[in-house]
Design a protein around this nucleic acid. Structure first.
Lengths: 157, 157
DNA sequence: TATTTATTTGGATTTAATCCAAATAGAGTT
DNA sequence: AACTCTATTTGGATTAAATCCAAATAAATA
């Protein structure tokens, strides 16, 4: 077992509520969880210190900011030992928002966000040029039908 | 063109800073952007009203909460016209955190987060049972090498 | 230039975060 | 069960931020 034992239902409820809206005042969270706001504060500090709550970010509608196209990339490497090198290169391409080592055919599975088809082409070109990358398969996102935080509360008692 | 014209560099800078840490006080943002905190407030209200900033969420280390396995699923449908129906069913499965309509072989591309391999099996079973789903391909995430917000600022002047 | 409209400012007010000493609860010991 | 030690919670006091708003400024229009 690990640190999960240090986390109780109060912690989970706090995280769960703040995960829906990270700007909810602790005073309001406190009411819903039936503790004082001081306790919410202490608990959140603990969760941050433990690295469970890493930060808070905005949920932005990128299409309204002109970023209209996102795509998943299945990347094939020449040799799978090149993984770390290629990841380092991908980190320098700001349009790459995530990259994973996964089971299955692909050596790397990544996601990119671009402004338009032209921009997408440029980014794909840049990625193809990276040393060690053999070829890529592109899954362009035409619709995002679900995108939500995980509900880790209310599963088990 | 669309509403992008209503957004200036001050807006972008504000979003960009808050996207790194959504809890940064507006007073601090104000200093960095060289406007008053009242202006930050007005701008954020505008951005929220426009639907550009939708909410703020926590960035949680799920593995530390016992959710150790995530996976991408390529889902094949019996008929692509079943898309909406299947999405509705997937929405009822809380482990499904995202689902997309994409180009390529898959009819639906989804992501799930599970506690362990057993839990993963249960969830995959549930998904297989959904009416209209033919078969699925599972890409299990073994490592998350990149995961970051898009940097939409500092691209063009 | 004059007039209208939109935006910013800075201070006044309300609200929340933060800190902390005291109170309480819990765990372990005899 | 009473006692001790430790950890957690509480609520209020203090500091800091959000929010609101009227006045000032800037920008747009005629």
């Amino acid at each position: 077992m690990d640190k999960i034992l240090d986390i109780d239902n109060i912690d989970l409820k706090i995280i769960s509520l703040l995960n829906e809206d990270a700007k909810t005042p602790y005073t309001e969270i406190a009411k819903k969880v039936f503790v004082s706001s001081g306790t919410v504060h202490v608990r959140m500090k603990k969760l941050e210190d433990m690295g469970i709550v890493k930060s808070a970010t905005l949920n932005i509608d990128f299409s309204k900011l002109g970023y209209d196209i996102s795509a998943f990339l299945g990347i094939y490497l020449e040799k799978s030992s090149l993984y770390d090198n290629v990841i380092e290169k991908l980190k320098t391409i700001s349009e790459v928002v995530s990259a994973y080592y996964t089971t299955g055919n692909y050596s790397i599975f990544a996601k990119i966000i671009c402004r338009d088809t032209n921009h997408l082409r440029l980014v794909l070109d840049n990625i193809q040029k990276v040393d060690g990358i053999d070829r890529t398969e592109t899954l362009i996102v035409l619709e995002e039908s679900i995108n939500r935080p995980i509900q880790f509360f209310d599963k088990e008692k």
